[in-house]
Design a protein around this nucleic acid. Sequence first.
DNA 1: ACGTATTACTAATAGGTATTAGTATAATAT
DNA 2: ATATTATACTAATACCTATTAGTAATACGT
Lengths: 347, 347
Amino acid sequence: MAAQRSRRKRPSMNDVARLAGVSQTTVSFVVNNVESANIPPETRKRVWKAIEQLGYRPNAMARSLRSSRTHTLGFISDEVATTPYAGQMIQGAQDAAWEQDNLLLLVNTGADARLEEAAIETLLERQVEGIIYAAMYHRSVSPPSIIHEVPTVLLDCFIPDRSLPSVTPDEVQGGYTATETLIKAGHRRIAFINNKDDIPATRGRLAGYKKALADYHIPFDETLVQIAGAGPSGFNSYEATYQLMHLANPPTAIFCFNDRMAMDTYQALHRLGLSIPDDVAVIGFDNQEIIADILRPGLTTVALPHYQMGWWAAQHLLQLIENIDAPAPSSPVQHTIACPLVLRHSV
Amino acid sequence: MAAQRSRRKRPSMNDVARLAGVSQTTVSFVVNNVESANIPPETRKRVWKAIEQLGYRPNAMARSLRSSRTHTLGFISDEVATTPYAGQMIQGAQDAAWEQDNLLLLVNTGADARLEEAAIETLLERQVEGIIYAAMYHRSVSPPSIIHEVPTVLLDCFIPDRSLPSVTPDEVQGGYTATETLIKAGHRRIAFINNKDDIPATRGRLAGYKKALADYHIPFDETLVQIAGAGPSGFNSYEATYQLMHLANPPTAIFCFNDRMAMDTYQALHRLGLSIPDDVAVIGFDNQEIIADILRPGLTTVALPHYQMGWWAAQHLLQLIENIDAPAPSSPVQHTIACPLVLRHSV
DNA sequence: ACGTATTACTAATAGGTATTAGTATAATAT
DNA sequence: ATATTATACTAATACCTATTAGTAATACGT
């Protein structure tokens, strides 16, 4: 029962063939269940018995050397560890890959461009059939051009020239959903505390917010939109909430750019003696489970579909690989995945 | 610049050889920088030029077919996604592997034993040189026996018969460190709110707590140890804290089994009008960044060394692989990694 | 009885590389 | 001038599998 000592040569088809008294070809036919070769049941049995006896296992390397299909996807990311979402993206990708008998070969590089190129080079040497290039926070990336040598899907990121397919969260829909949820709960004075960095999430969620207001014939009021940073220093969501609640006509609901900010908003409202959701409704974004579960009342929020994005990336990549010889190389699809509402008790 | 269309055959050493006007053997010598073959500089240059020109890249599959070294480790886990720590373990393992030119082949199985065996089978077919079997929360696992076919390291888990090497957090030292930190801050009435499940963490941290008290000659007081569940329902840390603070001789410091519980303790102390750390010091465990950063004052806690454990697992596995033909198969090492203190402001 | 079809296999090869055992030529030693 | 050695290569093979093109034996049709 001890771990195997010594790199004992694993048995090959030839060993099986010898033991079963047939040719290697026959073993191959039996193993792969080739119908066209008429192997009678007794022979099959004999071969399987030899396989069992020797503990034979096909060698995927040798196999792919012939077929030039490795059933392996490269997954490269620049910061797997630092966010709690990374695991979900990986798991989504892994699940989709596994469903089609593919595995993920993992590499991550600390945003060091040189290392990144070396990593991709390594993946290519290992004959991955495609690459998932993952980043975080829906940002703009510029992978080394060598990546174009193989089908690639960008995960939670994009390149400005859109020359590679990508999958990102639908920020606009997310902002829309959050806002609409508040509207449907009866609110008409809805504030939005946006993030200060100029990234797609910032613009997208704002666009969704505006669109929802427009659709429900609520005039857009600039004073209800605040721009705050995250964290304890600088102008943050806590202060933004204070300002909002001191307006002549204060909001009855606040949509926060993310859950972290919603937490500060909770605190501010608490300090102001206002109750959630009775006096003011709050909705967040990101569905950071720890935060959302911890807050009282539980934070209603919009989730970032990390698992689904990972899933889609792998699934789409496999499709690209399958159709690699197909006719029109239509322009790379920029896929967007809906951000679902997660109901708790803050609205 | 578009992604490569059509599975164009990649150039091989033979193609390079033809272009450079040498034999495949010579190309191999040049590529691998074999000293014993006396290839003069001009010839080398000619070969490299041909390589460049064709965009030749060695084929790792073919290479490992001959050498039977794949430089690939399998990483199998049952629940990558569900915890924020998973990414760190993976990253640690990946970094250590990468340092020695190895890559991780990732698989995860939803605790379905059948799937698990299939997954390992797949890894073995792909000729991984070893397997990292990862779980979460330092638990007892029972991997399918097939895993013994290849060097294996257990990550954040163990098997009762200790027949496989493992790496886990040093719970005893962690509990000791937490307690000692409080002692050194001047406390002598130190409570411990333990977790109710009977797992190594529960017993280990308690043992560390007791040992620290003993070392500093503080008598162990059973009334200062509470057992609570996590989460909002049942007897939790909030209530435990209440009970502790209503003792005739209440504690001046509380060591909580984890950060989640510490959060409830914060709330209870807050409700009681006690200030942290002036009236009561609090220390947690796990270093869940989100929680620890959010709490005011920031929570001093003991970190679980997920990255380091992942790193050690890969590193040790590679060592096992290297020494696979070595003499004594000494009993599998059960390694333990220190849990470092993370200072914030609650002590 | 003879040609054809079916059954039950096998030999040979390709896929890309690393390595061993050469070989042919040039340089050096005696 | 001959033997030895160093230089600059190459031919052949092994690694393991999948596949194509066979072959030998039997069965079948008329």
